[in-house]
Write a protein that binds this DNA or RNA. Sequence first.
DNA 1: CGTTGGATTGGCT
DNA 2: GCCAATCCAACGC
Length: 210
Amino acid sequence: MAAHLPRTFYARPAPAVAPDLLGHVLVRSRPDGSRLRARIVEVEAYEPYDRASHAFGGSTARNAVMFGPPGRLYVYFVYGMHHCMNVVTGPPGHGSAVLLRAAEPLEGLEDMARRRGQVAVRELCRGPGRWAEAFDADRTLNGADLVAGPDVWIERGRAPTDLLATVRIGVTRDAERRWRFVEEGSRWASGPVRLSVSRPARRARSRSSG
DNA sequence: CGTTGGATTGGCT
DNA sequence: GCCAATCCAACGC
């Protein structure tokens, strides 16, 4: 099997780990022996001195995993109905993490689609809430070890040719930090994948139905 | 294809 | 009480 990313990979600041995660593959082993696999194309970094982070203000019952050792999964519940998956980074006690926002589904697509409902393959893991649902991730997965645990891990994948750093999505405080990292041009991402929106090449007169 | 608002729980002030 | 690291359907053009 492909090599897991080692603990040292995660033991760095979130804004350093985040872009390095692009291209690697999140794997979840299912009880029946099958696997879910998806290639990471979009992530966001959160640091404890950053008011957008759950860790801002210190450790609580909800965010305690963020303050534990790096290389664990931090799963939280939001908006009363969605879960989001994060990778804990930095030295123990630091309180930083990388939000997993979007991925290209590689294996177990039928399993994902069963939970996601009748949606296009493109929609299976495009967005943190969608990806968590596709991977059947809830708070029972909170704290799972990605390095030594048997259930979920990250293996090496093909690095992107180019990546883009933009502002984070849905963030209102400390919103100016460009800590969202996305594989440039990826059709699997949940937000902008280009620096500027290019004007549609509309020659002469446009046709009625475009 | 863009924008808008509702859903619905729980964490923290 | 307030509002959130979101998603989706409904609308208007």
